[in-house]
Design a protein around this nucleic acid. Structure first.
Length: 319
DNA sequence: TCCTCGATGGCAGAGTAATC
DNA sequence: GATTACTCTGCCATCGAGGA
């Protein structure tokens, strides 16, 4: 048995192998791949020479595979199926039948807002499509999108503002959410009350860092009592403390819905949070990626959020 | 003996590398 | 870029083995 040289292997011969394995007849196998019987026979000769094995031998019941051909058959047939699926996938994307897995990069804030309506939509229109949401650090997003490790990134990702295609999804503004034990004089928090409060900070939210810088420029400094990496822990903490936390309105509304809290505008202006989806140029014309982007763009996310643009926002390459 | 079906020889066309 | 020689592949016609 010869060792098959992959560089010299004619991949068309794998189709010949597959047809012979399935038909057990040279003439019918030829019809299956569009060759005449002599051409099929000739192809079998070449295949035998490359494999160093007869592969199929004539018997009263047809062309039976040798033990070596039987051993090869599983991997060869799987490889051909994989190739067909690969090229069918790149040629078109049918959400109703697609089995593709998309990898998304999202903060837990974006997951909180986007995943519930997105999964409800996928369940209806693309039941076999799977999403993997990566937990990698934000400073790794750029490399993951460039390498193809991830399909899309969603969020307020200023580090991806250049070099990627993007569409805006919605904008949100920051508000102040008060813990149940927090006391203030009026309905809206004053600057003095804000600075005197015990602050709860989500370190994953880079806007918090911006707020600290803005306050410092005005000669102020807030008192951070606790910093946490994720939003998940906010509701139980706010339910039992007098902490206040600065988050977007959508998060405030969600916390209010969960445990019932007060929230109000900040006593100073902050920039709007613009949630966008980002993708690399390599996926710009990919039918599957394009379809997923459209699904996300069409989502109705949160009652308090302002949608950006039309249901199908125009993508913008940014250099 | 006949029929079926894989194998083989000869030929043509297409593709590729080498040469000018 | 054009020409030439070589290689590869497929087709037609035919052969030959094996089964009924």
């Amino acid at each position: 048995m010869a060792i098959v040289d992959a560089h010299k292997l004619d991949l068309n011969l794998l189709l010949v192998f597959e047809a012979l394995y399935l038909e057990r007849n040279v003439t019918r196998a030829g019809q299956r791949v569009g060759l005449s019987q002599p051409s099929m026979s000739n192809a079998l000769v070449r295949l035998r020479a490359q494999c160093g094995d007869a592969l199929f031998v004539r018997t009263p019941s047809g062309m039976e595979p040798t033990p070596y051909a039987t051993a090869l058959s599983g991997n060869v047939l799987r490889a051909l199926d994989l190739m067909r699926a690969t090229f069918e996938q790149s040629a078109a994307f049918d959400p109703a039948t697609a089995r593709r897995t998309f990898t998304l990069l999202m903060s837990d804030f974006s997951q909180f807002l986007v995943l519930p309506p997105l999964m409800a939509r996928l369940k209806q229109v693309a039941p076999r499509v799977r999403l993997d949401v990566s937990a990698m650090d934000r400073d790794q997003y750029r490399a993951a999108l460039e390498s193809g490790e991830a399909d899309l990134a969603v969020g307020h990702l200023q580090e991806l503002q250049s070099g990627f295609y993007q569409t805006g999804l919605f904008v949100d503004q920051h508000v102040c959410v008060m813990g149940r034990d927090f006391r203030m004089a009026g309905d809206a928090i004053t600057m003095d009350e804000y600075l005197a409060a015990n602050h709860l900070v989500v370190t994953n939210n880079k806007t918090d860092l911006q707020i600290d810088r803005d306050l410092a420029r005005q000669g102020h400094r807030r008192r951070v009592a606790l910093s946490v990496p994720r939003y998940l822990v906010l509701p139980p903490l706010l339910a039992q403390t007098d902490f206040i936390v600065t988050v977007t309105e959508a998060i405030a509304q969600a916390i209010d819905d969960a445990i019932g809290v007060r929230w109000c505008p900040l006593p100073f202006p902050t920039p709007l949070t613009r949630i966008r989806q980002f993708w690399h140029a390599r996926y710009h014309h990919d039918p599957g990626n394009s379809w997923l982007r459209q699904q996300i763009a069409e989502l109705q996310i949160g009652a308090t959020l302002r949608k950006i643009g039309s249901p199908c926002p125009r993508s913008e390459p940014v250099s």
